[in-house]
Amino acid sequence: MKADSAEFERIVTEYAPNMYRAALAVTGSEAAAEDAVGEAVLRAWRKLGSLRDITSARAWLTKIAVNCARAQLKRGREISMEELTAEPAAPEQDRSMELRDAVARLAPDRRAVVALYYYEGFSTREIAGMLGVSPGTVKSRLWRAREDLRTLLEG
């Protein structure tokens, strides 16, 4: 697809909140999510030729943002000495917990599918394409994520 910089800027500006929301669900950190979005913008620009249809821009940008967010997780996070030496906390049920808080406690791969399925409304097939896995894998991760979320949200 041939898109000029103005068009690219338009779609990025329009879908940045979607990108951010998905990245936030994956990373659980506002700062990391912002960084992921910034990185995703650069990567999207470099890979603009892979966007074949402008109507797919939201999915395309969100996919890149999710993958950048996942990369952020792999690179690590800032921890304190207290956190380093503390005993791991036992999982507990919190009825007032928001979904975002619960999602932050999931394994990274499950966070991504939850973000794309529940927050962004993509189908399992679309998510499979975005993450480069089979639809069966997406369904499996969703199933496990639901079980974890059920424990966290309902006990």
Partner: peptide
């Protein structure tokens, strides 16, 4: 879960726009 996601007040920080602007300008 869908309802929670839909109703969740996801704070979109002002810094996000600046971050996007910065990325676009660069």
């Amino acid at each position: 879960l869908f309802d929670m996601a839909k109703n969740e007040d996801v704070y979109t920080p002002a810094g996000l726009n600046a971050r996007v602007r910065e990325a676009l300008d660069g």
